[in-house]
């Protein structure tokens, strides 16, 4: 009775998953679907490395139950570029991915997927966001390598461009 068939769209593809409704999304993504881009840094919501989008909002996959995403859409770092292409009809990567590469926002890269998902939601919802807003939105994401500055720079870079497409 605890198991159920859960239908969920992940990175644009529909999956029918049979399993425990209370299994966390993190293990579903990593262990069952092989979507290992979403990282497990602490497994209990203390680090932010496993952030994904659920219906476009950043959530921690280690705290999200499979049953709670039934009939909803999940986007992981693997699907970020695809989401962007569908939206813009081009073949580019998400501008935040490019900005992370160009701004030196990536070091060991383990926090990067979570940072990208939180940052991409921010630049989508709040074009022209201030540095303060960027920092607030990344407050739940630990990074041990960069000192954060280059990540803020990358997000601001894109937030400014999104505000003024010219």
């Amino acid at each position: 009775m605890a198991e159920a068939l859960v239908s969920v769209t992940i990175n644009g593809r529909r999956h029918a998953l049979w399993g425990e409704e209370t299994e966390v999304l993190l293990t579903v993504l990593r262990d069952r679907l092989g979507l290992t881009g979403t990282k497990n840094g602490c497994e209990v919501g203390h680090c932010g490395a496993c952030a994904v989008w659920v219906d476009g909002l950043p959530q921690l996959a280690c705290l999200t139950l499979l049953g709670s995403v039934a009939d909803r859409t999940v986007t992981t770092v693997e699907g970020l570029a695809g989401w962007w292409r569908t939206l813009n009809g081009n073949d580019a990567y998400h501008p935040l991915q490019t900005a992370f590469v160009d701004n030196g926002a990536v070091q060991c890269g383990f926090c990067t997927p979570g940072m990208l998902m939180a940052g991409a939601a921010l630049v989508r919802d709040r074009p022209g966001a201030t540095a303060e807003a960027v920092r607030e939105s990344l407050a739940g994401h630990l990074c041990r390598c960069t000192g954060y500055e280059q990540i803020v720079r990358a997000v601001l870079d894109v937030a400014a461009r999104e505000e003024d497409p010219a």
Binding site: L35, T36, G37, T38, T76, V77, E78, A81, Y93, Q97, F100, V101, D102, G104, V106, Q107, G109, T112, P113, L116
Partner: peptide
């Protein structure tokens, strides 16, 4: 850029 950056931003 770092030579591994793209692999890390795409998962």
């Amino acid at each position: 850029p770092r030579i591994d950056a793209w692999a890390k931003v795409t998962g």
